[in-house]
Amino acid sequence: MKISIPQSVLTVTVAVSALLGLAACSDPGASTAQIPVSTSGTKTFNLTPDQDRVAVTQDPAAAALVPEAIKKDGKLTVAVTLGAAPLGLYARDNLTPIGNEVDIAVALAQSLGLEAEIVPTAWADWPLGVASGKYEAAITNVTVTEERKLKFDFASYREDKLGFYAKSNSPITKIESAADVAGKKVIVGSGTNQEAILLAWDKENVAKGLAPVDFQYYDDDSASSLALLAGRADLTFGPNPTGAYKAAADGKTKLLGTVDGGWPLQASIAVTTEKGNGFAVAAQAGINHLIAEGSYAKILDIWGLSSEAVKHSELNPPGLPAS
């Protein structure tokens, strides 16, 4: 299945791919993640340019909802941030965008009778790009918030989950509540959603006389992974997709529990579109078609994200409140 990539992007990809490989590929709740490429663990990931993508059928009813301004050129221009597997990354040729977000974008476009034009985009650039119409959608792990709903429309396609991970031989078996992290050495990203949750849990524990959390911060993912595997930390707490990918790819870590990204509220990851242009309605219909035909579940399974599946897409679902 062919993905259209603008020539202007191709001419600069080699130069910037190394930099983008170090960039966060999610909302501000995500930590910087380098791309692990080992496939010696419990699941094999295809990181080659030749992606055997899930077959998708067109939904005429959903396609009819696409605004004329978008369908006129037959393409759906989608911003995707690359750098955090399994969401968005470059294949081993350092040219071809792959990952769950790319597959969702390609499948959504096909369900609407369009060709996906994937535009690798820095996280900081998608809001202006979508608002200005440069990108017809952003599919890049965007969490729905009430503040963002003032400027954008959304069609949800995944739950926002954070995950606690430990090395595979850790004696810790589960993390389900605040008491489970008392006295633990936990790696967490500074200024992130997960840090805010952990701070709240720690405050609750201390008030109950439990041991405080030993917060640990690292500048990059490689250093934090090394600290965990060397036993200098008990746990990492961060975006579940990247944690799940690494655990499946090399088998060195294990999942102990997940928490909603907007704890204590549930958060949604959604296709992000220009406010009021009507495309979000088509996107919602397209995603629901993918869910109904089963291709959606297959795409998430390929990248180890089945646990974050939604039963149906919601148009402008409840967003996280402003902090």
Rank of each mutant, 00 (worst) to 15 (best):
N316M: 03
L10E: 11
S170T: 15
A137G: 01
A79P: 07
V80T: 12
P264F: 00
R92L: 14
A207S: 14
L95D: 04
I172G: 12
G113E: 06
R53S: 12
A63S: 13
L235G: 08
P127C: 11
P36K: 10
A85H: 09
T42E: 13
D153W: 01
I118K: 02
V188D: 05
K298T: 15
L315G: 01
V12F: 00
N240F: 03
A64W: 11
A249T: 09
P6N: 13
V188K: 06
S170V: 15
P86L: 07
T81R: 05
F152R: 01
D221K: 05
L265P: 03
P60M: 13
R232K: 15
K184M: 12
V119R: 04
T77W: 04
V213Q: 02
A23G: 10
K275G: 04
N240G: 02
A61C: 05
S177A: 14
Q51N: 04
V14S: 12
E195N: 13
Y217M: 09
E101P: 06
L290C: 10
E308F: 11
K151Y: 13
Y165W: 12
I139F: 02
W123I: 13
V78M: 07
A105H: 05
A166I: 10
K208F: 05
E293I: 04
A15T: 12
E68I: 13
L10I: 08
L300W: 07
A63D: 04
A309P: 07
L199S: 06
Y165K: 04
D250L: 06
G74S: 09
Y245C: 05
K298G: 10
T192G: 08
P321C: 05
A249C: 07
G243H: 14
D50A: 11
E117Q: 15
A297N: 07
A55F: 11
K151Q: 11
K71P: 04
K184R: 15
V56R: 01
D250Q: 07
P28T: 12
E115M: 06
F279M: 02
R158I: 05
Y135W: 15
E308Y: 09
A109R: 09
I299D: 01
L22V: 08
L162R: 04
L22G: 10
V181C: 00
L22D: 12
D153L: 00
S31Q: 13
D250V: 08
V54K: 00
R92I: 14
V78Q: 08
P67W: 08
N205E: 02
P120V: 10
I104L: 15
K167T: 07
E293S: 07
D59Y: 00
D52Y: 09
D125Y: 05
E293F: 03
N205H: 02
I5M: 11
A207P: 02
A24D: 12
V259H: 00
P36W: 10
A24N: 13
S222V: 14
W201S: 00
W123R: 12
K208L: 11
T121R: 02
P212E: 03
S323W: 08
A105Y: 06
